[in-house]
């Protein structure tokens, strides 16, 4: 049974690249979303096990998406990603209720599975 994933990012090129990478690592990408509101809708519709959310979305921030999903029963593991470093965001990641943060350039299937296992 493959782990289901939702990708929320406003850059289509990155979404496409990440889908290829995750599917090659054995994940099932069930949906993609270009902004926070669509991401929340997709998360509720598909109930993925992992939601990979870009911090800088055009409507609401990735922290808001993580906070909204963390407040739901049996919510997914939210992985915040960004092309910036974690230190740029201070304590915001911990306060958001996300499983963790990962720089975009370091995303791998193994890293996501490790983050899920620490949950």
């Amino acid at each position: 049974m493959r782990t289901t994933v939702l990708i929320v990012d406003d850059h289509p090129g990155f979404r496409s690249c990440l889908r290829t990478l995750l599917e090659a690592d054995g994940f099932a990408v069930v949906a993609e979303a270009g902004d926070g509101a669509e991401g929340l809708r997709m998360a509720r519709r598909h109930a993925p096990e992992v939601v990979i959310v870009d911090v800088g979305l055009p409507d609401i921030s990735g922290f808001d998406v993580a906070r909204a999903l963390a407040g739901e029963r049996a919510g997914p593991c939210v992985v915040l990603v960004s092309s910036r470093d974690a230190v740029d965001y201070g304590g915001l990641v911990a306060e958001s209720g996300a499983c963790g943060f990962m720089p975009k350039s370091e995303i791998t299937g193994d890293a996501i599975e490790r983050m899920m296992s620490r949950r």
């Binding site: 090129g13 990155f14 690249c17 990440l18 990478l21 092309s83 975009k104 791998t108």
Partner: peptide, 12 residues
């Protein structure tokens, strides 16, 4: 963003 994509592509 492009450099991130390059990094992911190289890893794959």
């Amino acid at each position: 963003q492009r450099l991130v994509a390059v990094a992911l592509s190289l890893r794959m």
